[in-house]
Nucleic acid binder design. Structure first.
Length: 678
DNA sequence: GTAGGGTTAG
């Protein structure tokens, strides 16, 4: 390499345009540039962290970075770990024509790697162009670097193009392309390369297999994954910890947890990734207890959880609503210290919101160093689920002020907030606002608008809205209308909506029950019976209702009419006590939500043992007076329980929070936060 | 020397 004369350092200028004197001592801390490409764009600089004043030689110092900007090049100090900061504040001007330096091959590769890591496609392209006019034009290793740069920067077209034109390819070339497709979500393209490479005589290695397996975890069917599994077994790759982890992750993504577990157990050497993949699989299925068990097991075996682990654990806590467990794990994160809160902050917000503590969710949100789109969406959605519509809308406006671009999820949360708080005008306003932000309304957005109009009693408008939808209405859209018809006792439109649903999704029990209830409350008992019969004949089954409460870190599950609980007699006595007290202050059992063909007494009896009531009675037995009771349900709370809980919050003098599949209900002083919208 | 696996909002 040509020696780089020291006078070139004078071309470096400081932050405010003044020449920057780079004394040998400064060279120790500041970076200086070494190379400028003919085209002016790509530049590398070296960090003199190994330098010792005069002995330091810029030509032999290790490369650690690439200059980033185009014309006026502002260098970003890049530490050897690859993270960047602006600490040097060094500006470099006019690097063009500073010499006819011919870069070394390693220089190209280092620069390409930095472009790849920093996702600098433009600079990468310039380096590619430069290489094409050099003697390294056909260098396989350098071409692989370039290929990797295009693939990682998301330009799969350029990657594929280069791959096709490469005079020779090796396993790395194939793996780079496969992983590129796999990482950019183009699973089918990645998987299609597998037979091609076999055909050309290339044997996938552990790297290739991992990438292919990742693709099959998100691909169109688990068929490819099983094929790859067989291949791994044949060549003994299944024992490799990387391939093994990928295999287990692939099965976990297909929710084949039994197979995932078998692979996990068979792994001689497990690592954090294997644990994370297994935990994430169970977390995706909402198996909270299982996740907690695995997490503890992992700790006991001396593995250090990463932010991936915590994210999955919090996701699991969010879906089971285990506030105590979530808090415990949160404390564990803080105690263990090492985990950057930024990575897991968003899952924490979600966990607290879904476990019923919106206050803690807000606290975490406020403390985040940087609030990104996911943070905002999580907190807005949290407020929406708790029926705090005004607060959710306020946050949304704050988000716009903070110049964070909302996406379709943001708007869905905003619309849900309006729907859960009965804010009709606001809902319509924000639905229109989506167009301004160039976000296309999806089915889910339309559902919330139908819901909003329907609840407000504007059923015909809601129907008209559905008719004029630019996309095909789904069962969920008609379901929103049907629910509103039930609420406002509009039988004709309700029947019409139900018919649409039965065509689109004949196996859902919800609409059948709603329709039969609509008939029943209109006095059309024979029609109601017909719907029930239809349900029975077509094998439509209702999901068994259950509720659960968490007491002292343990989850207790209750099923309707459950008489298997060891404390059932005490629980029943407690409910009777509560029931007596609330009847005194005006509670009247609302039997219209129960099967209409029962007599009044049977209906009341049936209602008494609704799972949420059992859960409430149990919680009252097991917790000190005054403490907030948190109950979770796997279906929506029924009208009678809703009414009973309002009275119960008064006679018990404590807050009861119920999370159902739709939202949160905070019962306090005889009222509910949903203001009877649910 | 270049290639691989694990999170988050609906």
């Amino acid at each position: 390499m040509v020696m780089f004369p020291h006078c070139y350092f004078n071309r470096c200028i400081g932050k405010y345009g003044r020449p920057l004197a780079l004394s040998p001592s400064k060279l120790k801390t500041l970076s200086c540039f070494l190379f400028a490409a003919k085209y002016g764009t790509p530049c590398a600089f070296v960090e003199s962290n190994t330098a010792e004043s005069q002995d330091w030689d810029p030509c032999t110092a290790p490369f650690t970075g690439v200059l980033q900007d185009e014309d006026l090049l502002r260098t970003t100090h890049i530490s050897s770990s690859g993270t960047s900061s602006n600490s040097t504040g060094l500006y470099v001007l006019d690097l063009i024509n500073c010499g006819s330096l011919e870069p070394e091959r390693t220089l190209y590769s280092k620069m390409l790697n930095k472009c790849t890591y920093l996702r600098k496609l433009k600079q990468g392209r310039a380096i590619h162009a430069h290489i094409q006019s050099s003697t390294f034009e056909d260098d396989l290793v350098l071409l692989n670097f370039i290929l990797n740069m295009y693939a990682k920067c998301g330009s799969l077209e350029e990657a594929q193009d280069l791959f096709d034109k490469m005079p020779t390819k090796d396993m790395v070339s194939w793996t780079v392309l496969i992983s590129g497709y796999s990482q950019s979500g183009q699973a089918s393209e990645a998987l299609a390369l597998f037979p091609k490479m076999l055909h050309l005589g290339f044997q996938p290695n552990e790297f290739t297999l991992s990438s292919l397996l990742k693709a099959s975890g998100t691909g169109p069917s688990d068929h490819h994954g099983r094929q790859l599994h067989a291949f791994s077994l044949k060549y003994g790759y299944d024992m490799n910890v990387h391939v093994g982890s990928s295999l287990l992750d692939m099965y976990a993504r297909w929710a084949h947890m039994r197979e995932a577990k078998v692979i996990f157990n068979s792994l001689a050497a497990k690592n954090v990734v294997s644990w994370n993949a297994l935990i994430a699989g169970h977390a995706r299925k909402g198996e909270g207890e299982h996740v907690m068990r695995l997490f503890l097991q992992m700790l006991r075996q001396g593995f250090e959880p990463t932010h991936f682990t915590y994210s999955s654990v919090f996701t699991a806590c969010a879906s089971s609503g285990s506030l105590e467990q979530g808090k415990w794990v949160h404390a564990h994160v803080i105690k263990s210290g090492g985990q950057p809160i930024a990575y897991i902050g968003n899952t924490l917000i979600d966990m607290y919101a879904k476990s019923g503590s919106i206050k803690d969710a807000k606290k975490v949100f406020r403390r985040l160093v940087k609030q990104d789109i996911v943070s905002w969406n999580s907190i807005i959605s949290g407020y929406a689920q708790h029926g705090l519509g005004a607060e959710a809308l306020q946050l949304f406006e704050q988000m716009l002020k903070a110049k964070v671009q909302p996406n379709e999820i943001t708007f869905l949360s905003v619309l849900t907030a309006c729907s859960h708080s009965g804010l009709l005008d606001e809902g319509q306003y924000y639905f229109e606002l989506m167009k301004k932000h160039k976000i296309e309304a999806q089915v889910a957005h339309h559902v919330t608008v139908v819901d909003l109009l329907g609840r407000a009693g504007r059923l015909n408008e809601a129907n008209k809205f559905i008719e004029e939808m630019p996309i095909k209405p789904t069962a969920a859209v008609w379901g929103a209308l049907l629910g509103s018809c039930r609420m406002h006792k509009n039988m004709d439109l309700g029947v019409y909506a139900a018919e649409q649903i039965f065509e689109l999704d004949p196996h859902d029990s919800g609409p059948h029950v709603l329709l039969s209830n609509i008939y029943a409350s209109a006095g059309r008992l024979s029609d109601a019976a017909k719907v029930r019969k239809m349900m029975k004949e077509s094998g439509v089954k209702k999901e068994p209702a259950c509720s659960w409460v968490e007491i002292e870190n343990e989850v207790h599950v209750f099923v309707a009419n459950d008489d298997s609980h060891p404390m059932r007699e005490e629980i029943q006595r407690m409910w009777e006590k509560i029931s007596g007290k609330i009847k005194e202050i005006g509670y009247v059992p609302d039997t219209s939500h129960v099967l209409f063909f029962m007599n009044q007494q049977d209906r009341e009896l049936k209602l008494q043992y609704h799972s949420e009531k059992l859960a409430l009675a149990f919680a009252v037995l097991k917790t000190p007076p005054g403490l907030t009771i948190r109950i979770k349900k796997n279906i929506r709370i029924c009208g009678d329980c809703h009414s009973a809980f309002k009275f119960a919050s008064r006679v018990l003098g404590r807050e009861i929070i119920v999370r159902d599949t739709n939202r949160f209900h905070h019962f306090l002083h005889g009222m509910c936060s949903c203001r009877d919208y649910w």
